[in-house]
Write a protein that binds this DNA or RNA. Structure first.
Length: 288
DNA sequence: ACCCAGGCGGGCG
DNA sequence: CGCCCGCATGGG
């Protein structure tokens, strides 16, 4: 497979891959090589990131299709990253977060895969989310031969998971989320077309997503942000709540509604980009 | 042993 | 609307 090259500025692969996005859960990241490998449909994509003045990306995919579109879309290479940083650098607190993780990008992933990852994320921790997703891929995905002869797996489709037995889904370690996965798979392989709702505006999209059992406000915001690229979405989990309270409310307890409206006023249509920094900054520095 | 994790559905006032 | 509870599982 021929490699293709792209360039990007201010793109840090480690922060992007490690910061609890879908590629954190189903991508294989080899830090020492700056290389990430992940399935796209039943094909495999490999991308190596070489840091320099700009970041050079050398990528290939297993099915012979040009990989450029996939990389450009996944890592949002068309974004004007300078003006995005400009838009969210509103104060010293967020600037500190940006300074610590400069180059961390919000990725744009496949909606179904994003939905499953964040349904699993509820009341869970990063390590377990990753293991559960891997188990689902091994059990319900299709095997793909890796670039070095190793066996990897595709992300299981909604159709295949809709036919799975709950107890077999549970066997992947999903716990009480198994019924949500099964029901979401039935819904998304049946009456809901996740592709067709991509044209909706943020609020309508979020409402549609919340019709999926197991998808509440936070998960819907994660799917809107990382599955549909809605940068105004601002998912508030325990870490974002904690961080926002520390950064902007003197550590005082605030409701989700207050945090949402504050973030929306402050960062507007770039709130989701800011959220990734608030989240990862808080989780990295406040933990323990 | 106890507490927590990128929350949600359901029931109640 | 807001509040409270239970929930599978594994790691600290």
């Amino acid at each position: 497979m021929r490699r293709e090259r792209l360039t990007a500025k201010m793109l840090n692969l480690s922060y992007t891959i490690e910061s609890a996005q879908p590629l954190t859960f189903y991508g294989d990241y080899e830090k020492e090589f700056g290389r990430v490998t992940y399935p796209v449909g039943n094909a495999l994509v490999e991308a190596e990131f070489i840091n320099g003045q700009e970041t050079t990306i050398s990528a290939r995919r297993s099915d012979g299709i040009s990989v450029r579109g996939e990389i450009a879309s996944r890592f949002r290479l068309g974004d004007d990253i300078v003006s995005m940083y400009d838009a969210i650098s509103t104060d010293r607190k967020i600037s500190a977060a940006i300074g610590q993780f400069r180059g961390m990008r919000v990725t744009k992933n496949e909606p179904w895969e994003t939905s499953v990852c964040f349904i699993i994320s509820q009341f869970n921790n990063l390590k377990r989310i990753r293991r559960i997703v891997r188990n689902l891929m091994e059990r319900f995905g299709e095997p793909i031969e890796g670039f070095r002869g190793e066996t990897r797996y595709s992300f299981p489709s909604a159709e295949s998971l809709s036919e799975a037995r709950i107890e077999d889904i549970m066997r992947c370690g999903t716990g009480f989320r198994a019924k949500y996965i099964k029901s979401a798979a039935e819904y998304c392989s049946g009456s809901l077309d996740l592709d067709s709702i991509s044209k909706l505006d943020y609020n309508s999209l979020k409402a549609e997503l919340m019709e999926i059992k197991g998808v509440g406000e936070k998960v819907a915001d994660c799917i809107a942000l990382m599955g549909y690229g809605k940068m105004e979405a601002f998912p508030v989990d325990v870490w974002v709540k904690r961080s926002m309270e520390m950064m902007y409310f003197n550590g005082k307890n605030k409701s989700l509604k207050e945090i949402h409206s504050y973030a929306s006023r402050k960062w507007g249509d770039m709130a989701g980009f800011a959220q990734q920094y608030v989240f990862w900054y808080g989780r990295s520095n406040l933990r323990g």
